[in-house]
């Protein structure tokens, strides 16, 4: 649904985006992570046909972003960094205006906006001037605007950055729902917890280039090594030392009543490991994976990139 190949954008001598390739199938969420100025917004602007790529090509919902810009804009809903609300309008007027621009009749725009305002908890503020809206309300309304014409592709830049936890949850739930209704979503965020929750795929972008891409699990494995599993024991180890651990398993830490193992292939190795522990008559009361966050993986990716760059210099 979103396909980009070697997408590149130069502004005079400055290379904002350098050979980005993406492939987001229908009904999937790709999260783009990266520091400020990494090229996320420029990428989104190329995918919405606002900026013309200097090199490369991109298809959105099957339409070429250069040659079929008009069609691309029809099928894309965009939540931009700047919400672009008009302070002297109310939500109904604002959404009717955008509905009309997307070719909806005023009645249809009103019907859809009523439903969306209700869904996002803004129904009671429909007649309030947008200048009086809080940051979070503005962001929700901008999201409503992006969804108004029911686009099959959504490009969302920081959709929950200004929201309180309750609103952010509401928006994340909405994104889950949209994914299950076969919408394709590209989401730029700095919120790694949100990324971990929502992403089917993650692309880490830095200085205009994608430095890592994959599913969150694959990225963690790739960047942080084999997953770790912890065995909690009902009694003390009493000087027990692990010998003869199954192949692909190694001890990474131990305490008074716990053991931690690095496991290369958990599906195959974990049953053997558990059997081994039980053979040793250790009273295993819990066996679980040690949680590792996408944040750790992201920071590791950036650190690796920094090291490589330092080495190049």
């Amino acid at each position: 649904m979103i396909l980009a190949e070697d997408l590149t954008k130069h502004f005079d001598d400055f290379v904002a985006v350098n050979g980005i390739s993406l492939d987001v199938p229908t009904g999937r969420v790709m999260v783009v992570l990266g520091p400020n100025g990494a090229g996320k917004t420029t990428t989104v602007r190329m995918l919405t046909s606002i900026l013309t790529p200097t090199r490369g090509r991109a298809l959105v919902a099957g339409f070429d972003v250069v040659r079929q810009a008009h069609e691309v804009r029809r099928v894309v809903g965009v939540l931009t960094e700047h919400h672009g609300l008009y302070g002297r309008m109310n939500a109904h007027e604002y959404l009717e205006f955008y509905g009309n621009l997307y070719g909806l009749s005023s009645r249809e725009a009103r019907r859809r906006s009523d439903a969306l305002l209700e869904q996002f908890g803004l129904a009671s503020a429909g007649k309030k001037r947008l200048g009086e809206y809080s940051k979070g309300m503005r962001q929700k309304l901008a999201l409503v605007r992006a969804l108004l014409h029911e686009p099959p592709v959504l490009l969302l830049d920081e959709p929950t950055s200004a929201m309180d936890p309750e609103s952010a949850r509401m928006v994340r739930d909405a994104i889950h729902t949209l994914r299950s209704s076969e919408r394709t979503i590209l989401l730029c965020t700095h919120n790694l917890l949100e990324a971990e929750e929502l992403a089917d795929q993650v692309a880490i972008i830095r200085a205009g280039r994608i430095i890592r891409t994959g599913t969150p699990e694959n990225l963690k494995r790739e960047l942080l090594g084999a997953p770790e599993f912890e065995a909690r024991l009902g009694s003390s180890l009493n000087g027990w030392t692990p010998d003869g651990l199954p192949e692909g398993v190694h001890l990474t830490g131990q305490g008074e009543n716990w053991l931690r193992f690095g496991v290369e292939a958990p599906d195959a190795a974990n049953p053997r490991l558990l059997r081994r522990l039980l053979e040793e008559r250790l009273a295993v009361v819990a066996f679980s994976e040690v949680p590792r966050s996408l944040e750790q993986a992201y920071l590791e990716a950036v650190a690796q990139e920094n090291r490589q760059e330092a080495a190049r210099v």
Partner: peptide, 11 residues
């Protein structure tokens, strides 16, 4: 004010 960008995203 940045309100031009949503307009530019429309058809």
């Amino acid at each position: 004010r940045g309100s031009i960008e949503p307009l530019l995203n429309t058809p």
